[in-house]
């Protein structure tokens, strides 16, 4: 029985790992952490996967003037030099979608992270040579979001 239940867990796990899960448009998760802490976690999750963070874009001054009070809002841009160089040489129309980015903003004492699914680029650019790159970005962005969400 124990063996079987372990095996079942394995089957279900495989389904989760291999099954394409998630909303079709956006990846969106909530972190229990306060914004500065979630932001630090996000940056380290990105860097630990070999990406370079190129910019922390601010949008906040404009949000602050609105009803919705959020003094903390950033778009974090990141990429890998060789990768960006290669894919844009092959497909310059990818440039408007790069570098990859994850948006993070505070909601009360939590933080929300949003990103588009890199996988979505497959439907825009159905080049089989680019597919593995999009899949890798997808796995990395999902893993980064999971890491921030699950940190405790």
């Amino acid at each position: 029985m124990k063996k079987l239940s372990q095996w079942l867990r394995f089957v279900v796990l495989m389904l989760l790992v291999s099954g394409p899960a998630g909303a079709d448009g956006l990846l969106m998760v909530r972190s229990d952490k306060l914004f500065p802490e979630a932001m630090a976690l996000l940056q380290s999750a990105i860097s630990s996967r070999g990406y370079k963070i190129t910019r922390l874009q601010q949008v906040n001054e404009n949000l602050e003037r609105r009803d919705y009070k959020s003094d903390m809002y950033r778009v974090v841009y990141f990429g890998k030099y060789e990768e960006v160089k290669q894919v844009t040489a092959k497909q310059p129309e990818l440039i408007p979608f790069l570098p990859l980015n994850i948006t993070i903003f505070a909601e009360r004492d939590q933080a929300i992270l949003v990103s588009s699914h890199p996988r979505m680029l497959e439907s825009y650019f159905p080049d089989p040579a680019l597919r593995p790159v999009f899949e890798r970005w997808e796995r990395d962005v999902v893993a980064i979001m999971d890491e921030v969400r699950q940190a405790n």
């Binding site: 389904l15 989760l16 099954g19 394409p20 899960a21 079709d24």
Partner: peptide, 10 residues
């Protein structure tokens, strides 16, 4: 959103 890519089990 419509979660079209989820499996039935999920």
């Amino acid at each position: 959103p419509a979660f079209t890519r989820m499996s039935d089990a999920q």
